[in-house]
């Protein structure tokens, strides 16, 4: 009984599938968040160096992971959409962008708030922080381009091109920023390579990472369903859906 996976590539069937999956993911996300935060705040010991300030790491690091991870996922869906001309994959790519941008902003925000007690300044031109900022610009560029184009098909393809060009440039940007950083400051502010992780700290961070992942899947699925409705409004199955909904 081979489930033909291609059945789900048609927006109509994906719509119902996503409908069933979204609550599932959001519940797991919620549970993981609670668990992660509990361990992070109540089980993890006080760090000898930064006392309690380090607890920001439980949201900062997962956010940074998710920001880069989501950009890669977005670019791959965009590529599939461009190559196979499947409208659904481009819809998913369009749906991922806002969540990715949010996580990049969160990574920057929590990084700044963590940097203040640790280094005494809100912003440090460190290689990772700078490339995170540039990643935010890439996300915004993607969303702005898609917003500026009315015809959805062209918007999808144009977005795919800029996402792929962005993905090719991320390593170059990261390398040049790292090079630039060492040239100027000689890395006076060396980020301690995430303090020797006590077991509980690590588990809490991993759980939070998973929680953010589940959360993003849930939000992306929800947004994809909205986009499907928006773009398929003229189709029959949407009007039938209206009859019943």
């Amino acid at each position: 009984m081979a489930i033909n996976w291609f059945k789900y590539s048609s927006p109509a069937s994906f719509y119902s599938l996503a409908g069933k999956m979204t609550p599932l993911f959001s519940i797991t996300a919620f549970a993981l968040f609670v668990a992660g935060l509990y361990i992070g705040f109540f089980v993890a010991p006080t760090d000898f160096q930064q006392s309690e300030a380090y607890r920001i790491i439980f949201i900062h690091v997962p956010a940074a992971w998710m920001s880069m991870f989501l950009y890669l996922i977005m670019a791959s869906w965009a590529a599939i959409g461009l190559a196979f001309n499947t409208r659904l994959s481009s819809m998913i790519a369009t749906a991922i962008a806002p969540t990715g941008a949010m996580f990049t902003f969160l990574a920057l925000w929590t990084g700044a708030l963590w940097g203040k007690p640790m280094w005494g300044t809100w912003w440090v031109w460190d290689a990772r922080l700078t490339s995170e900022l540039i990643l935010l610009f890439l996300y915004i560029g993607f969303m702005a381009l898609q917003a500026a184009i009315d015809d959805p098909r062209r918007a999808d393809k144009a977005g795919a091109v800029i996402a792929l060009v962005g993905v090719v440039n991320i390593p170059i940007i990261y390398f040049s920023v790292k090079w630039w950083n060492t040239l100027h400051q000689g890395a006076t502010v060396s980020l301690t390579q995430s303090p020797k992780m006590a077991a509980t700290m690590l588990t809490s961070m991993l759980i939070m990472g998973l929680a953010c992942w589940m959360y993003s899947i849930a939000v992306v699925l929800m947004r994809t369903r909205t986009i499907i409705l928006e773009r398929e409004r003229h189709t029959m199955w949407v009007s039938e859906l209206q009859g019943t909904a």
Binding site: G141, A144, L145, V161, I162, V165, G166, N169, I173, S176
Partner: peptide
């Protein structure tokens, strides 16, 4: 090429292209 014929294309080009210029600027 991407922003051909779009309204507000000028600003959009800068938003798209500036992040990609950064390595050239740095080197």
């Amino acid at each position: 090429a991407l922003t051909l014929g779009l309204r507000g294309g000028g600003v959009l080009v800068s938003l798209l292209v500036l992040p990609l210029y950064i390595p050239v600027l740095i080197f």
